[in-house]
Each structure stands twice: as C-alpha cells, then as structure tokens.
Design a protein around this nucleic acid. Structure first.
Length: 887
RNA sequence: GGAACUAUAGCUCAGACGGUUAGAGUACCACGUUGACAUCGUGGGGGUCACUGGUUCGAGUCCAGUUAGUUCCACCA
C-alpha cells in the first residue's frame, strides 16, 4: 500500500471535534460495532448500565460513570472478548410521577386525581415516549458504546414479568408481607417511603418542657420534654426508666393530659434515658417509631392526631384541620397560657426529610407491603465477605456489610400510580388475598369479584433485578448463561444501599449466584469549590456544554485523569483547557506524521533501527504493559496519565524531533521509510491504547494512518512485544536526553541566544562513549550545538567553560567571554551545596552497619553507585571553582 | 453515638510491594514565531509531604494518638 499525500493538504492546525465526533458515532452504529451476539468460544465481559431515569438529563455524574464503563468496555472489546454493555433506562416511579404531575398542573391546571389513574398513566407513557430517549441521545454524544440494539426499560414487558415473578415468589416464601406499621410518610408526595429515602439533617429546634398533672395528687406534676408538642394530643402514656429513683413512686399512677380530657398512665420502660430531658417521656405510639414499639410492649392505644395530609385529625379536637406546624404554635401558646409550659431549651436534632421533595417526613401508621430482609441478607453478605464479589476500592465493603448487618425490613409499596402495580388482588366476596404472576379477574377460591391493590412498587424493586431481568430472566436464556454474573458494576458510592445491596440480595436469592464480580465505585463530581452540583445552587455544569465546546474526548479524559477511584473530584475549566490542549497535541503530532508520509510504503525495505527508533519502540512496550496493568486494576486515571506522558513527553518531545532529519531527507529513501514506519507504528499503537479514553480523535487519526481493518474500535489491543524491549537503547537515550537537557540548562542560565549554535564538550565514561559518539547528531540537533566533542573523562578538563555533571557525563560549554565569573561561581557553589547534602545522607546510610546488613544488596549497590556519581560531580565542580578563582 | 475518607508546590491532584535528589497539570518568571502544534517550545523559581509519638537499617508511604475538614450510618424524646 502506498500513501499519497499532498503537501498542500489542508488538515486544520486546530482540532475541531464537532464534525469528527458525529461522523464516527454514526459510522460505528451503522456498522453495528456496539452490538454483540453470544460467542461461547470467547471469554465473556459484561456490564449492565446503571439505568438513567427517563426524566433525567445527562449530568456530570452520568458523564463520569458512563465514561468509566465505556473505557472498560472498549478495552475488553479490543482484547477480543465477547463484550456486552447492556443499556436501558429506569421508569423512576415517584420522580417521574412528580415531574409529569408538575407539567400537567402547569399546562392544564389539573391534578392526577382530576385525570384519574388510567388517563394519568396514559400521559406518563406519552411523556416517556417523547422524552425517554433524550438521555440516551445525550449519552451517545459522550461516545459510549452500549449495545443499543438490546436497550431495555424497567417497565418493558420482560422486566415487568421479572418483577411479578420475584414479588409472587417472595410472597409465597413468606418473605413479602403486608402490615400496619409505622413508616416514613411524605405528606407532600403522599406516599410511604423506605428508610433510606429519608435524609436526616441536623436542624435547630426546641425542647419544650411541659408538666402533666398527676391525677389525685393536687399540685403534683410530672414534667416531660418534647421536640414535638403537637403530638401530645395523641399521647397514651408517659414513660420513665424503672431504675429512676426520682419517679419510681409514680409508676402505675395516671396523669391528666393537658388540653384534653383524657388521662394517661405512667409506665416504666428501660428504653427511657435517665439523663435526657427530665427522664420522663411522653409516649405517642401513632407518631413516633420508638413510641410505637413501646406502645406494642405496653399494649397502649394508638391515637392518630396527624393525618396523611399533614393536618391534624378529628382526634385533635379543636385543633382538627390545622397544619401540623401551625398546630404546634397554637399548642405551645395554649400550654403557656394555662401554665403547663415550664421552659424552652434550644436543641439541634436530626430531622428526616423526603429525598424527593425535601419536606419533613412524618412517621405514620399505615398499611404497607414489606420485604422481610433478614433471611435474605446472609447470602448477599457472605458473597462479599468471601470475595466472590469485590468492591473496588475495597474500603466500601465495610459500609456495605455494616449496613446489611443492621438491615430493616424494606417498605416496597408506594401510594403512586406510575410504576409496577402490586400484583395482589383482594376478593370482595370472601376476602381472599391473591398474589399472582398474571392478571386475574375473579377469585380463584370463590369466583367472586376481585380488585387489584392500588399501590405501585418502589422503583428500586425493579432496579434490583436489572442484572438478570435485562438478560431475559425468568427464562433460561443464552444471554444469561454467557453474561451472568456480569463482570463489573460501575456506579457512585451514593447508591450502594439503594441499588448495589438490593441487586446482591435479589441476585443471590433468584439466580443463586452473584450479580457481578466487581463493584467499581467512583465518587461525585463537585464544583470548583467542592460543593455538590445542584439545580438549586445553580452551580451545575452541563456536560453537553463541555462536549459542544471542547468535544467528548476532552471531557472524558478530563473526568478520568487527575483523581483516584472512589474519591470525589472537582470540576475545573482549567483542567478542561489542559486536556483540550492534549487532544490538540495529538492532533498535530498526527498532522505532522501525515505531512511526512508521502510515498510511504508499508512493505518497503527498512534500514536498521536507529537508537531513537529502538528507544521509542521499547518505551511503547513498557507503556503497553503498564497501561494494561493499570486497567486491570481499575486504575484508569493512572493509565491515562501514563499515556499522556508517553505521547507528549516522549513521542512528541523527543521522538518526532529526532525523526525529522530522516523524514525531511528524501535523498535517503530507506532511512526515510524506516522513520515513517516507526512513526506510524508508534502513533498507531498509541492511538489504540488511548482509544478507550478518547474514542473519536483516535478513530479519526487511525483512519488517516495506514491501517488494517475498518475501525480502531474493533481493532486489536496492542500486544506487549518482548523482542522490542531494549534496555540498552533506553539507557543510551537517557544519557543523551540528560546531556541535552544539561546543555540547554546551562545555555539558558547565561541567556545564550537559543537559536544560535555553540560548541559543547562531553567527558564520559568509556561505556557511554560509543553510544554518544554514534548519536552525537541527536544532541547537536536538540541542544543547538554545532561542534560536539566527546572524550574520555580522564582527559584534561576544558578551561574557560561552564560545567555540570549528569548521569556520568561531564558537560562543558565553552562560552568565550560569556562567563560572568561571579555568577558562575555562585551557581556552582549552590549546586555543590545540594550535592553535599545529598552525599552526606548517602554516606550516612552507607556508614550504617544496620543498613549494610539488613537492606537488600540491590538497594545498597544503588546507593554506592549514587555516591560515586555524586563524588564525581563534586570533584568536577570543585576543579571548576578552583579554575574560576584564577581568572 | 458509631464509621469511613481527606490533609503532599499558590491552586487542583498523582505518588503499587516502605529504599527516586517527592511528581504532573495549572498559575508564576525568563527566553523563543528554525517547515506538527503559541491550544506551542526551552529553561526556571516554588514543598521541613497537617501535628506528635512509635515500628524499622530506612517512613510522604506502616501503626497509635492529636488537630482540621468532608461524608455516611444511627429510633434518643
């Protein structure tokens, strides 16, 4: 194959991602590169996407999460594995319902109750059909390579069937039950919530001390302390600790409950803390979880005074109908007026808020469905503790197991319409309760009329099944056989309990197998001040904006590098700029290559590799190996950093510069072809290694370079070629690079005109002499040297020259008339100072018997070499200083 | 009340098994438009690795404690 390039070709100097990205994504999709069929002969690698909400817009968290997955997926695909990335989205029950309700309210002024269940659901489906794909399209802008042909939805037919199967099966096993319990109730969203949907926040509140008169003992009171005086209307007892000597004599007596005409008993219960408040607690079983428990123990009555709407009930007497906080004010006022209020203290305490609407959650008794967790968690904890499923980073294991060890039953019913309706029917005639996998229209027992439970399931119930429901469960599919357990699950630490834990539980229960081998946890993307990005703060940065301005490659690489797994990261535009510059650097390196590939013939006869060729090829192998190692350990940031350093710091800064003379010289076609060959080889491999991170620009470049195959994304991952590893070449090049840098450094010190060539003298050890002589042209080219003299270091030292010693090389720069004796002496003395500090440290080590005896021989030898080198340096500098004194 | 994480250059962050003269990007200073790139090149300044103790021949790296910050869990009215 021969490349024809036109000297005048107009590849733009600045990389423009917009056109490139659209073009290649369309190309990949058209060629079905994302799609995978089961291939039992290949090693399987699979990921199920954390399904984004249909209401959602792509945010930075998605961008990070999906980039991580895409890197792993693209890498494994290139490794030749049978690679599946299962995409899909989540119906997000409550969140979506609220969203659609808002829209309908705004546009039509109606509530969902106005529309009725059927019509409302029709609207949500419409909404889903209209906007559901929005986030998928946004994900595509990011370049992710999901198998879109397999896209799933938590409420599609298959997933819904899986939900039914799991629900009914658990019900039959007695692991799902219905009960009247005190649960978290959101008075705004009008539904029950699970414990983890309640967010606790410390709030400044008050502790009101109220005295309750003891019945039959005029003038005797028992003072209680409460943070919620409005609930006193529902008090059915006051409790003291049985050990509490202050109140012992009162236990068994009754109290007159102020503001009511009821009397309540004084009971003893060890739950009561003697040191808090007065040591006497009012008990309101209907409105406090602890009181509820105590009420059960002491068979107390539940008096509901706050309703589902957050307003006081008829039980609240004259307060009926008042909003709960308004009532609180009025109660306090009344107590004060009647002399029952003893004092008010300031108190900060944790108050639960609804995760969705942030209003204060009310503990209320209601009839709900629960999953009995305790029998289910063991398997899910065991598989993590014995390492079948591993968290990366490992530290998240602990928070997972801690949480699982203290698990509460999971309230799964929601008083909402959008979601999986609870598959339970009640017979209106015989009262039978039937959980069914299929819809029923009459009672199987008596044939009577049935009606279905009105409630829907917690969104996370269907998410919990995601790893297997998306692969066709409960059918025994080939997909499941090949891809379950999935290889890795990638998500943020914020949903470990909501999602990871539940998937482990359900996977172990229904597949009898872990859902994933690894859980790769990442942190949050925060703003530049470290704050969470949020709508209310207005500090969110739209990933699509970054993609528009800078390209997806830049966003992806920026999000992945510069932080470590599991840690939060801050978003800085400066870092976006820096990454954009990297993309542009790659672009221009490729532009350079293309401009110099004219006449390139893949099969041309090659000259022997030069030192630079051997060096860069060897470094490429090191990079391939290290990058692969890092990827295997989920150190994606480190792998990215390595690629950055290799491409910019070695390939661009040194190799390209050194290849220029051969590329420009058309009189020696064999050498030119060799340089072209190595240039293409290294650049091509570098693009492959970088492809998982920056899929678009690497495809664009790869397609321009000589290549085999139709796309870089289905090309093979570079192999570590041991025969190209050349330590000698690497050592030789580092000597040359060190000498070059030393010369540049000294020239800069005296402000020598950078463009003007000057002579230099190197005095070197015998073993370095040959490589330096052979490649003297490198130093001349890169250090702007015209006459380079290389001698053995036992020769006479050149006079009237600047000097420094690096890597066993004494570098002299004759600078006739340029040397400022004073300045040069100062510079050398400063260097001498650092060196003497260093040698003192090393000699201390070498003089330490313990070090010599216990440190590995290798380390000792290294220190000795170092000591020798420094000694040599110091000697040379001292000689030079002596000479300067004579001037 | 438990638990986790973080503390390294002005800023944002890397530093695997303890052994490099502790790194990068950015910012800053100086010089530079030689035919890939000024979204660039070359060079430079800048850190007692939060503090205290311990283990070790040797600690930014391991252990204990202290301080500061962040976060999660927890039914204390």
């Amino acid at each position: 194959m021969t490349i024809e390039t036109n000297e005048e070709h107009n590849i733009p100097k600045v990389y423009d991602p917009a056109a490139v990205e659209k073009k290649w994504y369309a190309y990949w999709e058209k060629n079905h590169y994302f799609h995978v069929e089961v291939d039992k002969n290949k090693e399987a690698f699979s990921i199920v996407i954390p399904p984004p909400n249909i209401t959602g817009q792509l945010h930075m968290g998605h961008a990070l999460d999906n980039t991580l997955q895409d890197i792993l997926i693209r890498w494994h695909r290139m490794m030749g594995h049978n690679t599946l990335w299962m995409p899909g989205y989540d119906h997000a029950g409550l969140a979506t319902q609220i969203k659609v309700e808002e829209v309908i309210k705004r546009e039509e002024g109606k509530t969902r109750y106005d529309l009725g269940r059927e019509e409302f659901l029709k609207r949500v489906w419409q909404w889903k059909n209209q906007y559901g794909d929005r986030i998928v399209n946004q994900l595509k802008c990011l370049g992710v390579s999901c198998d879109w042909e397999r896209q799933r939805f938590t409420m599609d037919e298959g997933c819904s069937q899986a939900v039914r199967e799991v629900f009914v099966s658990l019900y039959e096993k007695g692991l799902i039950y219905q009960g009247s319990r005190i649960t978290n109730w959101c008075v705004n969203c009008n539904t029950a919530l699970s414990d983890i949907e309640v967010e606790h926040a410390d709030e400044a509140g008050h502790l009101w001390y109220i005295r309750y008169p003891v019945v039959g003992e005029e003038g005797t009171y028992l003072t209680i302390a409460t943070t919620r005086p409005e609930t006193m209307l529902g008090d059915t007892a006051v409790a003291v600790n049985p050990e509490d000597k202050r109140y012992g004599y009162l236990v068994g007596k009754t109290l007159k409950l102020p503001l009511t005409d009821r009397t309540i008993p004084i009971i003893a219960d060890s739950y009561v803390d003697l040191k808090f408040g007065t040591g006497a607690v009012k008990i309101t079983p209907a409105h406090d979880p602890n009181d509820f428990e105590m009420g059960m123990r002491h068979k107390l009555e539940n008096i509901v005074v706050i309703g589902m709407d957050g307003k006081m009930t008829a039980e609240a007497g004259i307060y009926a109908g008042q909003e709960r906080y308004e009532c609180r004010k009025n109660i306090v006022k009344a107590l004060e007026e009647l002399g029952f209020l003893v004092k008010i203290e300031e108190l900060t305490h944790a108050v639960g808020h609804c995760q969705r609407c942030h209003c204060v959650v009310e503990p209320l008794v209601s009839k709900q469905w629960f999953v009995k967790m305790e029998p289910l968690v063991k398997a899910a904890v065991d598989c993590v503790e014995d390492g079948r499923t591993q968290f990366v980073p490992e530290r998240f294991t602990k928070s997972y197991t801690n949480w699982m060890d203290n698990i509460h039953d999971w309230c799964i019913s929601r008083q909402i319409w959008w979601g999986h309706r609870i598959p339970v029917w009640y017979c209106d005639d015989c009262g039978e309760v039937i959980a069914s996998r299929t819809d029923i229209d009459k009672c199987p027992k008596c044939g009577g009329h049935v009606h279905q439970d009105e409630d829907a399931l917690d969104t996370w119930f269907s998410s919990a099944l995601w790893p297997f429901s998306t692969m066709g469960w409960p059918e025994k599919t080939d997909l499941l056989k090949q891809f379950y357990p999935t290889s890795v699950l990638v998500t943020g630490y914020d949903i470990i309990f909501f999602w990871i834990a539940r998937m482990l539980v359900m996977g172990m229960e229904f597949m009898k197998e872990i859902p994933f081998h690894k859980v790769f946890i990442h942190g949050l993307v925060r703003d530049s001040q470290g704050r969470k990005m949020s709508k209310s703060l207005g500090n969110g940065i739209d990933p699509l904006e970054v993609i528009d301005k800078y390209g997806a490659d830049t966003l992806r690489f920026m999000l992945i590098t510069g932080n470590t797994p599991g840690n939060d990261m801050r978003f800085y535009w400066e870092r976006v700029d820096a990454t954009r510059n990297f993309a542009n650097k790659i672009w221009n390196a490729s532009r350079f290559a293309l401009m110099n590939l004219e006449g390139y013939d893949k099969d041309a006869k090659l000259a022997p590799y030069t030192l630079a060729d051997k060096w860069i090829l060897s470094r490429l192998q090191d990079t391939e190996k290290d990058v692969t190692d890092f990827l295997e350990n989920f150190e994606l940031g480190e792998a990215g950093r390595l690629l950055y350093e290799f491409i910019w710091g070695e390939f661009c800064d040194w190799y390209i510069e050194l290849a220029k003379p051969r590329l420009y010289n058309k009189d020696n076609p064999t050498e030119r072809a060799t340089a072209q060959h190595v240039l293409c080889e290294v650049l091509g491999s570098a693009m492959k290694l970088l492809h998982p991170y920056m899929p678009f620009i690497t495809e664009e470049i790869w397609q321009c370079l000589p290549h085999e195959g139709d796309s870089i994304m289905v090309s093979s991952w570079p192999k570590y070629q041991e025969d190209l590893v050349d330590q000698e070449a690497e050592d030789g090049m580092s000597a040359i690079m060190d000498a070059t840098k030393a010369i540049r450094n000294m020239r800069a010190e005296v402000n020598a005109a950078p463009g003007r060539k000057a002579p230099a003298i190197l005095l070197v050890d015998a073993d370095l002499k040959e490589v330096l002589e052979t490649n003297a042209s490198y130093i001349k080219l890169l250090a702007t040297v015209d006459k380079l003299t290389i001698e053995n270091n036992n020769n006479n030292k050149p006079q009237n020259a600047m000097t420094t010693v690096v890597n066993g090389i004494e570098v002299y720069l004759p600078l006739k008339g340029l040397i400022d004796v004073e300045k040069e002496s100062a510079r050398l003395n400063k260097e001498l100072e650092t060196l003497s500090k260093e040698i003192k440290r090393i000699e201390g080590k070498l003089g330490n018997a313990g070090f010599l005896a216990k440190a590995p021989a290798e380390v000792v030898a290294k220190e000795k070499v170092k000591s020798g080198e420094i000694g040599q340096k110091m000697m040379a500098i001292n000689e030079r200083l002596e000479y300067l004194k004579t001037l």
